[in-house]
């Protein structure tokens, strides 16, 4: 049994310790907001927060997050009320939307550590997350908007 906390809920999981967190979330827990995009930590679609830090769940073994707090997109808010979600809605960021769970969680972690990020801060924090639709410009705007809303 592996114990971890997902979106503030304690989970006891009968899975192999080497199973990547991504597949535990998606195929065992049914939390499909976290996406599979590359499997080798190059696209960031699988980004979740572990104790507030963005990690790539496709290359993180479930045993490595035992006892830790995992936050997925489903855990950000029950009603799209999180400041980053609100900013994403206001800027109409998503196109296909597939990468956006990872983008939003990475932005959330950035704003937690850097409440007023510069464009350079944003580029650095968000570069691991690919968007094939090219929503990058709106992502920048939305992060600035969320920073403004917080202060």
């Amino acid at each position: 049994m592996i114990k971890l906390t997902v979106n503030n809920q304690q989970r006891d999981l009968d899975v192999e310790p080497q199973m990547p967190l991504l597949w535990v979330l998606r195929d065992i827990l049914g939390l499909t907001g976290t996406k599979y995009g590359c499997g080798i930590a190059l696209c960031g679609a699988c980004t979740v927060l572990v104790d507030g830090v963005p990690i790539r769940s496709c290359t993180t073994l479930v045993s490595a997050v035992e006892g830790k707090n995992v936050t997925t997109i489903e855990g950000l808010s029950p009603d799209n009320s999180h400041v980053v979600q609100q900013a994403w809605i206001a800027e109409d960021v998503p196109q296909c939307g597939f990468c956006q769970s990872g983008q939003i969680l990475a932005a959330t972690a950035l704003l937690a550590s850097t409440p007023n990020p510069t464009d350079e801060d944003i580029d650095k924090a968000m570069a691991p997350i690919l968007c094939r639709c090219g929503t990058y410009q709106r992502i920048r705007r939305a992060i600035h908007r969320a920073a403004g809303a917080k202060t």
Binding site: R26, D27, G30, L31, T32, G33, T34, K35, Y36, T72, I73, E74, L76, S77, N80, Q85, W88, I89, D92, V93, P94, G97, F98, Q100, S101, I104
Partner: peptide, 27 residues
């Protein structure tokens, strides 16, 4: 006009093909 699909695309709710789950489904 803001996109109708945006709200479901900021909370993981939008269902892509990858996300389809059915009873007895195998992968």
């Amino acid at each position: 006009i803001p996109r109708l699909d945006t709200p479901s695309k900021v909370n993981g709710g939008a269902v892509f093909g990858q996300d389809v789950r059915l009873d007895r489904m195998l992968i």
